[in-house]
């Protein structure tokens, strides 16, 4: 099957202190190569500072990489301009962690969903309001909420709005950066279900970035493990969870709490 997204030897470094003539650089991403197939989910796991969010932002073109390539549907993304860039943006959409920060507090949430329709000129001005309501239905939200402000919505409702906004342009790939980490367990389950339903119905591929091994195990076809900017493990979910090859993955799995008191972790390999 063809790769929808291919990341080749991606690097990103930041200047980190030191005098101007001896500026040291921190490697946030150090030669990452991975790919996401059409309709599949790649789970990207790592702890804070591993570079997993930076990778997501590089793929979205929100952060410029210092080296390597991001190739979407056969076309390198760097250097895209005008129509081609707009077309890429339409096909790749983000969903962020913080449902408080991902919606403009001064806009009614329906307007945030409509923004993509306006910017990508999807439909006509007259049909867009109807499309917004369809999107609200699609993510299981009461369309009456469209005229509310984010502050009047619960965390789960806000995350549904953010997903509706991402779906507006009918993307082929969703970059989901910790989409359920800020949510309560009961709400998290609903949002994960919504994700899986959408994937089944619409065939959207996703790069699912998270620190939570339980979540990533549940939703991913493949898993990539990032540690300090390096890709330490990449493979099918079962393979990685049952027989992790890298010591870091093993320590991550060992530290992950399970719900069975006193028994060793089901996936632990000693």
């Amino acid at each position: 099957m063809a790769d929808l997204l291919r990341v080749e030897n991606l690097c990103k470094s930041y200047p980190a202190g030191g005098p101007p003539w001896d500026r040291r650089r921190v490697m946030a991403l150090d030669g990452i190569s991975l790919s996401v197939q059409r309709g599949k989910t790649l789970g990207l796991v790592g702890e804070s500072g591993s570079g997993k969010s930076t990778l997501g932002r590089c793929v979205l073109g929100l952060t410029e990489a210092s080296g390597g390539q991001v190739i979407f549907d056969g076309t390198p993304v760097q250097g895209l301009t005008g129509r081609a860039l707009s077309d890429f943006r339409r096909r790749v959409q983000p969903v962020f962690q913080d449902p408080f920060g991902s919606l403009d507090p001064r806009w009614p949430v329906g307007r945030s969903v409509r923004e993509a329709l306006d910017c990508f000129r999807i439909g006509t001005a007259a049909t867009r309001d109807g499309q917004v309501l369809d999107l609200f239905n699609r993510v299981g939200l009461d369309p009456a909420l469209a005229c509310r402000f984010p502050s009047a919505l619960s965390g789960g409702q806000r995350q549904r709005v953010a997903i509706a906004a991402a779906l507006a342009s009918e993307p082929e790939l969703i970059i989901a950066d910790e989409p359920v980490s800020a949510l309560d367990m009961s709400v998290q389950a609903q949002i994960l279900n919504l994700f899986m339903d959408l994937q089944a119905d619409l065939g959207v591929a996703s790069l699912f970035i998270t620190h939570d091994l339980g979540v990533v195990n549940h939703v991913s076809d493949d898993i990539a493990v990032l540690s300090r900017g390096k890709l330490v493990e990449l493979g099918q979910t079962d393979q990685v969870m049952r027989h992790p090859s890298h010591a870091y993955t093993r320590s991550l799995l060992a530290a992950n709490p399970t719900l069975v008191k006193g028994e060793p972790h089901a996936h632990r390999t000693d």
Partner: peptide, 20 residues
């Protein structure tokens, strides 16, 4: 019971999680 069931760690991969 519902809270425990909603935890993805205990559910089969890709299955719908029981919602509270």
């Amino acid at each position: 019971r519902a809270l425990l069931a909603a935890n993805p760690a205990g559910a089969p991969r890709g299955s719908r999680l029981p919602v509270i």
